[in-house]
């Protein structure tokens, strides 16, 4: 990753975290928030490959862990694996096609929900799976996918701009 790329990714992660942890409900819908950090992770993996998926996923998970989780590294692990798996679809990345990334974000969010559900709720003996599915997981997936529709063009444009810039600046030295 080039320096500019690193800086942009860090800014993206922090902004996503700030928006997601914002107190006011203008942003949440039916008391569910979209999973912006997951969107960033999935997009990074999908647009730039497995390695970036891992690194960005790790960053996203870590900032989350730092503030709201006792077990440091838990969400980092989930997110980096999600980033890696989405990176495997990098070959199929094509700017104009939004369907695949939407499906990827949806599936990633659903599997993230399942993991949290099993590890943090089932293991403590709370088994209201149906409620968790209909009240938390599915609304979150739906909302995240809708936000993804808005974010996707911005992210791809930003990504290609950075790539162009990096290519131009590296071209100067050759």
């Amino acid at each position: 990753m080039k320096r500019l790329h690193v800086i942009v990714n860090i800014i993206l992660i922090v902004v996503a975290f700030l928006l997601q942890s914002m107190l006011f409900d203008n942003f949440s819908f039916a008391s569910v928030r979209p999973n912006l950090l997951l969107i960033i992770t999935v997009m990074s993996g999908f647009m730039n490959g497995k390695k970036e998926g891992i690194l960005v996923g790790f960053g996203c998970g870590l900032i989350w862990d730092l503030f709201y989780n006792d077990l440091l590294g838990f969400y980092a692990l989930i997110f980096l694996i999600i980033g890696y798996i989405n990176g495997r679809f990098h070959r199929l990345f094509f700017d104009q096609d939004v369907r695949l990334p939407l499906i990827l974000v949806g599936l990633s969010d659903l599997s993230y929900g399942m993991i949290v559900c099993v590890t943090q709720f089932f293991l403590r003996g709370h088994f209201s799976f149906w409620t968790y599915l209909t009240k938390v997981m599915l609304p979150e997936v739906l909302y995240t996918v809708i936000i993804m529709l808005l974010v996707y063009p911005i992210m791809t444009t930003l990504n290609s701009r950075i790539r162009d810039f990096e290519q131009r600046s590296s071209g100067k030295f050759v």
Partner: peptide
């Protein structure tokens, strides 16, 4: 990338262990 994955998974596990 596979090695990177393993390294970072290890980092996470170590962090969890430490915390």
């Amino acid at each position: 990338s596979r090695h990177l994955l393993i390294i970072f998974i290890a980092v996470c596990i170590v962090l969890m262990g430490l915390s």
